[in-house]
Structure formats: structure tokens, C-alpha cells
Design a protein around this nucleic acid. Structure first.
Length: 497
RNA sequence: GAGCCGGUAGCUCAGUCCGGUAGAGCAACGGACUUUUAAUCCGUGGGUCGCGGGUUCAAAUCCCGCCCGGCUCACCA
């Protein structure tokens, strides 16, 4: 009888082992060896339940999972097995499994153990689907107790540091994990079906560019040079457009060496996709289609509730111009914000922009917009036609040389997506980078870096292209209705203990 | 980086204001119980009160410093 797996070591008769405070004496009656999981244990609990609903004649099952509850009645034992998909009750009767096995289960099996059972499905008097067990197997012994069965694991720090316990004991953590996984696969499916090619570009980059952020620096011993963890894949994805792949996307991590809070983690997941021969207006429509697809597949509705506010994602979304928003708030025209730097600085000081005296023009404008407008963009709303000084990689607006063809999608005051018609003029791109270098000299640490190789690529000709980035973590937060990014990242950044 | 809040048994939490033998529930351990489901009933064990210092006859409790976490702000478009 192969019941208990303690370790790979064989136990001598009479030897005493301490399991979770329980002293186990090996009497020689049990063969204590690690049991192999059988293939039939790979079905999910949810799968078993749905097959039974479909075909009640299906009743002989074999299922494995973590034992999460136990109720011993003397000569019968009830318990629940759990996997990521659900729970199923098991019923072990002395009459059925025999005295020895019943005794073994009663003394050796604990809540937390991973076990396999075989038996018949039936419904109890209360109607709960249950496995009447005729054989069982220890698959992995748990030496430590599970968190409290009723309250689960509440300690936020422990939930993050030992996420596996959170996943075992908190339904919501499992739901978010599944939601995130389905979101990623639906994004891939949507893009794949529309001819986009999934690619992988370098995470270790000699120049960290493509966004305004401080990078993590590392050193390559063999190349004898510094490398940066990417802050964005943008400039590499555009090289692929130059190379002739007209629809590409990358779904992966970016890294930014900055503060950690409820909406920022040093590594976070971005979707970036590029399509040749499109412009930013095509992307507005495409973004609405993408979100419609995701909401239909994941939530089955266009109305979502986020932190007590109902958001309506029925397209078309509101579209509003960047400077119209500022005018609404201040009564001032675009020229004021772009030409009257002293006036803008005065305004910034008035509304309480910190360090307004020392910020560069671009930073000032950005801060003022943030403070006055951003929080009120409940959305979903496309803010379009950004100032050029904030957008070094976007193409100049066809109707206004002060602006670029760019939008950001705001939902619940958060930026969810950022897109533009891409700047594909190598000469103008060089000048824009040079402007960024000036910003850097004026104290903007996050100003973008010049990438000569990228300009060389543009010099070979990049077709007119539109590109977009979507913050996946924030999107999951929205869909899961949680207010901290750490709830949607399985292992968020924490200080080492 | 600043402010506020928190850290007590494996887990969920009381106890801190107002100093006087460290508590409950779950889990564990022993026992009863063949349809229970937060099972129930009887019994037992379990603590570096985050860490270090100070005040005091006496500190989980008061004071100081530090560590870890949460929230808000700053930073980060």
C-alpha cells in the first residue's frame, strides 16, 4: 500500500518523523515512498464538474489537488480538494476503503497535503457533487500549515512575498491571475488574426531610448561595456518596419529605475504594436475594436465598474484635443502654453506645481496638464493632438506644426494607451533627439537619448506607420477593479528582507 | 524623500489610550462521532509581543533609534 510520501529516503521501522508537529512512527505496515502522479490526475476539477453536468453517466473519476478542508466523522471523512479551477468534495468511508487505509488516511493526511483520489461521483443530500473515494494516494506532503481557512491570508506583505499562499487561500488572487492570462492570450489572438507578427527585441540594449525614463544599468563582462535594461522596445520595433515587416507587436516587460507605488512597479508589461500605412486616426478605431474584443471575451459587457464608478466602453469613445482641455480649464489658448514660458511658469507656481521655478518648458507644460486635467479624465477618452515638445518620436501634425499626430487613451484618470503616427523623417528625427539632449542639459534627467543607429535605419526609409503602446498592468487593474498594481503582478518588487 | 497607519501563537485578530502573571478563534495534538461542509462535543500544548536602547520596583503597553510593509504626497508624463 503506497500512501505516504515524506522524502526520497526510506524510513526504517520504528523511526519517528515530525510532520507539522505530528509525530509519525513508521510501523512497517505502510510503504513510505514517493508516489508517481498518474496521467489521469491531470484533469482539472472544473473539467470534471462540467463533464458531469453534461453527462451524469460519467461518474468514475480520478482527481488530484490540494486538500483544503477535512471533517472527520469517526468512520467517515469529508474534505475538499482544490486546484486553480475549483473545489470538489471528497467522501471517504471506512466500509469502502477498508480499515487499514481508513486508519492511514485519518492519521497521516492533513489539510495542505496534495493528494490523488479515485472514486465515483454522487450528489449529497444538499446536492453537492462529491467523490466517493475507493482509493487515494499521497502525492506531496505539506510540512507547514495553510493560512486560516475562513479569513484566508490577509497580511499584505505575506501575500506578496509568498504569493503561492495567496493563490491557495484567496479566490480573488486566483481570479486576477486567470484574468491576466486570458487577457494576454486574447490580445495575441486579436493581433494574430489581423496579420500582426509577434516578435522579440532586445531587453539588454546599448542605449536605453524610446521613452522618457531612468534605466537600470548592467555590465556585460565579455563585451566589456554597459548595457541598459530596455525602457521601451519602440526603436527596435520600428527597425523591423524598415525591414519590411509591416505589422509587428511585442508583449513583454519594460524596466524603469524609478519610484514604486500603487501604479508603478520597476518592471511592468507593455504591449507595443506597429502598422505600416496607418495613421493615428486608424489606431483610434483599431483601439476601440481591440477593447471591444477584450471586454466581450473577458467580461461579457461594455459597462465596467471601477472603484465604484461605472465606465462605458461602448464605442465610439469621446475624442478631445489636448489644448481644448487646457483652454477649458484656464481660458488660455495654445500660444500661451507654447510661447509664453514665463506666463506658463507663473501659472504652474499658482496651481502648485512643485519645483516649477526650475522645470524646462516641456516639463512645465506636462505638469500643468497633469495637475489640471488628468484626474478628471474618467473616460474612456482619447486625448489627441499633443504638443510636439512632448513627443520626440511622433510625426508633426498635418495641419499644425506645433502639434503631433498623437493620442493617449485615458480611463479613470490613468493613461492606458499612448499612440501616434510615427515620425519617419530621419532628418527631423535627429533634430528632435538634439532637442531632447538640450532638455537633458537643462536638467531633465528623463529626456530621451539619441540613438544614431536608429536614425541610420530611418535613413533607409520607413514607410508611414502608426504605433501604439498599451500598459497591460493598468489594463488588468481596470478589468479586475483593483487599485494597486501589486494586485495584478504576481511577484511585485519588494525590499529584500 | 516626507506625513499618517500597521508589525502580538503557523494564520485571522483582541490587548497599547490609562504600565501590574500574554488572550480568543482557526490550525495542531489526544479522545468521541458513518451525509459533513466555517461540522460538532470533551481535553491538551503552543509566544524573541518586528529589532535595539532608555525610563520604571515592574514595559506588548511610555520615550528614543532602526528594520519591514500599507496608504497619501513628492518623484515617476
Amino acid at each position: 500500500m503506497e500512501i505516504l510520501a515524506i522524502t526520497q529516503h526510506s524510513l526504517k521501522q520504528g523511526e519517528v518523523y515530525n510532520l507539522k508537529g505530528k509525530l509519525i512512527r513508521h510501523e512497517g505496515k505502510l510503504t513510505l515512498q514517493s508516489a508517481e502522479p498518474s496521467e489521469s490526475h491531470t484533469t482539472t476539477i472544473k473539467g470534471i464538474k462540467s463533464v458531469y453536468d453534461f453527462d451524469p453517466n460519467f461518474y468514475q473519476v480520478s482527481v488530484a489537488g490540494r486538500l483544503v478542508s477535512l471533517r472527520s466523522m469517526g468512520k467517515a471523512i469529508f474534505g475538499h480538494l482544490q486546484d486553480a479551477t475549483g473545489r470538489i468534495q471528497i467522501y471517504i468511508k471506512k466500509d469502502i476503503v477498508g480499515d487499514d487505509k481508513f486508519q492511514a488516511f485519518d492519521t497521516l493526511f492533513d489539510v495542505g497535503d496534495i493528494i490523488g483520489v479515485e472514486g465515483k461521483l454522487f450528489r449529497t443530500s444538499t446536492g453537492e457533487l462529491t467523490v466517493e473515494v475507493n482509493d487515494f494516494k499521497m502525492l506531496a506532503k505539506s510540512l507547514r500549515p495553510l493560512p486560516e481557512k475562513w479569513h484566508g491570508l490577509r497580511d499584505v506583505e505575506l501575500r506578496y512575498r509568498q504569493r503561492y499562499l495567496d493563490l491557495i487561500s484567496n479566490e480573488k488572487a486566483r481570479k486576477i491571475t486567470l484574468l491576466r492570462s486570458r487577457l494576454l492570450s486574447e490580445i495575441r489572438r486579436f493581433l494574430d488574426e489581423r496579420g500582426f507578427l509577434e516578435v522579440e527585441t532586445p531587453i539588454l540594449q546599448p542605449i536605453a531610448s524610446g521613452a522618457n525614463a531612468k534605466p537600470f544599468i548592467t555590465y556585460h563582462n565579455y563585451l566589456e561595456q554597459n548595457l541598459y535594461l530596455r525602457i521601451a522596445p519602440e526603436l527596435y520595433l520600428k527597425r523591423l518596419i524598415v525591414g519590411g515587416f509591416n505589422r509587428v507587436y511585442e508583449l513583454g516587460k519594460n524596466f524603469r529605475n524609478e519610484g514604486v507605488d500603487t501604479t508603478h512597479n520597476p518592471e511592468f508589461t507593455m504591449l507595443e504594436f506597429y502598422c505600416a500605412y496607418w495613421d493615428y486616426r486608424d489606431l483610434i478605431k483599431f483601439t476601440e475594436e481591440l477593447f471591444s474584443h477584450l471586454l466581450t471575451k473577458l467580461l461579457g459587457t461594455f459597462q465596467i465598474s471601477y472603484q465604484g464608478v461605472t465606465l462605458d466602453f461602448t464605442p465610439p469613445y469621446r475624442v478631445v484635443k489636448y489644448f481644448d482641455l487646457l483652454k477649458e480649464k484656464t481660458g488660455k489658448e495654445k500660444d500661451f502654453f507654447l510661447r509664453d514660458i514665463d506666463g506658463l511658469r507663473k501659472l504652474a507656481v499658482e496651481i502648485g506645481v512643485p519645483k516649477a521655478e526650475t522645470l524646462t518648458h516641456a516639463k512645465l507644460l506636462d505638469k500643468v496638464f497633469d495637475l489640471l486635467v488628468e484626474d478628471e479624465l474618467t473616460g474612456p477618452v482619447f486625448v489627441i493632438d499633443f504638443p510636439k515638445i512632448l513627443s520626440p518620436l511622433a510625426k508633426t501634425h498635418r495641419e499644425d506644426a506645433d502639434l503631433v499626430e498623437r493620442f493617449e487613451l485615458f480611463v479613470a484618470g490613468k493613461e492606458i494607451a499612448n499612440a501616434y503616427t510615427e515620425l519617419n523623417d530621419p532628418i527631423e528625427q535627429r533634430n528632435r533627439f538634439l532637442e531632447q539632449l538640450k532638455e537633458k542639459e537643462m536638467g531633465d534627467e528623463e529626456a530621451m537619448q539619441m540613438d544614431e543607429d536608429f536614425i541610420t535605419a530611418l535613413e533607409h526609409g520607413m514607410p508611414p506607420t502608426a504605433g501604439e503602446g498599451v500598459g497591460i498592468d493598468r489594463l488588468v487593474m481596470l478589468l479586475a477593479d483593483v487599485d494597486s498594481i501589486r494586485e495584478v503582478i504576481l511577484f511585485p518588487a519588494l525590499r529584500q528582507r
